[in-house]
């Protein structure tokens, strides 16, 4: 089986008020950052055993449901599970 870790984030060009709020919150704790952006983390467990096939499936999922390309973008990492 393959586990896919999908990160969905707002596109760079889009203001992320949540990220801004967290950045400010960290500053209150004297923890300074260049930038904070917040997204969604989705874990999907697939029956597939080939990463190629898994990638195809995940891309379709993202295209059709998981991501709104109007404002979001995504990245995926795969892990083969014995």
């Amino acid at each position: 089986m393959i586990k896919a870790y999908i990160d969905v984030t707002l596109k760079k060009s889009i203001l992320d008020p949540q990220g801004t709020a967290v950045k400010k919150g960290l500053e209150k704790l004297s923890l300074y950052t260049e930038d904070v952006r917040i997204g969604k983390h989705i874990e999907v467990l697939l029956k597939e055993d080939k990463i190629e096939a898994a990638r195809e499936k995940i891309d379709e999922m993202c295209r059709r449901l998981l991501v709104n390309f109007e404002v979001e973008t995504y990245s995926v990492r795969f892990e083969v599970i014995e």
């Binding site: 707002l10 889009i14 203001l15 008020p17 949540q18 709020a21 709104n68 109007e70 404002v71």
Partner: peptide
Amino acid sequence: LTELKALPGALLRNKNL
């Protein structure tokens, strides 16, 4: 309707969260 693409654009979280 925006998710359906029947209307353009998207709706994000309110600016004040």
